[in-house]
Design a protein around this nucleic acid. Structure first.
Lengths: 109, 109
DNA sequence: CTAATACTGAAGTATAGACTTCACTATTGG
DNA sequence: CCAATAGTGAAGTCTATACTTCAGTATTAG
């Protein structure tokens, strides 16, 4: 069964931004409402919500709205996808045969 | 002993760009010269070198110049730093006590 | 020695995307 | 019911950075 529909591409793009990293950092300590999450960041609530959309799409954060309050919590599936990505690159690298063949093949061009 | 001087911040920033991800992807299959690495990317050699500088600073890639040819290879230390970062966030998240105390403390403001 | 190769460096352009403003809706406390 | 709270959505600004051009150096093949 496919555990997740999000790609490592999406996760890495999401974590490429320092503000979003700060948000993930903060949420890894525990769930927060949007306003609480926004408070220490010196940007508008609107900007925070925009970042949240990207974090949600990447599987790093899950949000849920109850009444007028949206609560955000870290979702580990984004981290799992990233872990797998690292593992794959590492395997490829370790199994590389210092592909002399490829180098020679590419030679004529 | 500090295994690495590079931060997860640097690594995540480096991997935030799709071109740099493509370069890492390619290098995980084995070492390449700058020109070879650049060939399939539709950008100038100069741009590739600029990306390489960021990848090197992040500990994801090591390059070495022999004569006029610079060879690039994946450096796993960048990946290790990232793996550790994921592990840390995950631990924090799993040990969170759904900090009701914090929520109440932040209440007055 | 000359030409071609493989980069390097400085300096400018151009665009993705982070951020803002502002007007709006939905919920809740008093 | 009214005001305050909590967030939403559209549309535009503005800046970091990805990318280019061009002119240069060092190395190597013939």
């Amino acid at each position: 069964m496919p555990r997740s529909r999000v790609s490592a591409e999406t996760v890495l793009h999401a974590l490429g931004d320092p503000t979003r990293r700060a948000m993930v950092e903060r949420l890894s300590r525990g769930p927060l409402t949007v306003s609480r999450l926004a408070a220490p960041l010196n940007i508008t609530l609107t900007a925070v919500v925009q970042h949240l959309q990207i974090l949600e799409a990447s599987g790093l954060v899950h949000t849920e709205k109850l009444g007028r309050v949206r609560t955000c919590r870290l979702e580990t599936s984004g981290l799992t996808v990233l872990e797998q990505w690292i593992h794959d690159r590492r395997s490829l690298w370790e199994r590389r045969l210092d592909r002399l063949g490829d180098l020679l093949a590419e030679e004529q061009e």
